[in-house]
C-alpha cells in the first residue's frame, strides 16, 4: 500500500506541473520546494498561513506583500493552492485562509 501511495502522489505532482505549464506565466520559475509547490506558491501560502485574522488574508494585502509578483501570477498561485486544498476562500472570493494550520 505504501508503494501505491507514492505512485498517486507522483501522479498528482505531474498533473499540477502540467496545469502550471498550460497557465503559462511562470517563465523559468520551475523550481519546486520540498512540499511540491513552486517558490511563488510557497510564498503565497506562507503569507496566508501567517495571517491571524479570522476572515483570513485578503488579496490586496497579498499583492502588497509580494511586490515582485504580478497580480496574474498571485492569482494563479492562489487558484493552485485552493485547488490543492491548502487554502480556501472565506467571507468572499478575495479572502483566504490556510487549511494547514499546525
Amino acid at each position: 500500500s505504501k508503494c501505491h501511495n507514492q505512485s498517486s502522489a507522483g501522479r498528482a505532482l505531474i498533473i499540477s506541473n502540467k496545469g502550471m505549464g498550460e497557465a503559462g506565466n511562470f517563465g523559468g520559475n520551475s523550481f519546486m520546494t520540498a512540499n511540491g509547490l513552486s517558490a511563488a506558491q510557497n510564498q503565497v501560502l506562507n503569507l496566508i498561513k501567517a495571517c491571524p485574522r479570522p476572515e483570513g488574508l485578503n488579496f490586496h494585502d497579498l499583492k502588497n506583500q509580494l511586490p515582485h509578483m504580478t497580480v496574474a501570477s498571485i492569482k494563479q498561485a492562489v487558484d493552485f493552492l485552493s485547488n490543492e486544498g491548502h487554502i480556501y476562500s472565506t467571507v468572499d472570493d478575495d479572502h483566504f485562509k490556510s487549511t494547514d494550520a499546525e
Binding site: 498528482a12 490543492e84 486544498g85 476562500s89 472565506t90 467571507v91
Partner: peptide, 20 residues
C-alpha cells in the same frame, strides 16, 4: 457563515485526497 465552513470542509477534503 455557512459558506466559510463549506469552503473549509471542501478544502480539507481536497487536501486529504492528495495525501491518501
Amino acid at each position: 457563515l455557512v459558506r466559510i465552513q463549506r469552503n473549509k470542509a471542501a478544502a480539507l477534503l481536497r487536501l486529504a485526497a492528495r495525501n491518501v
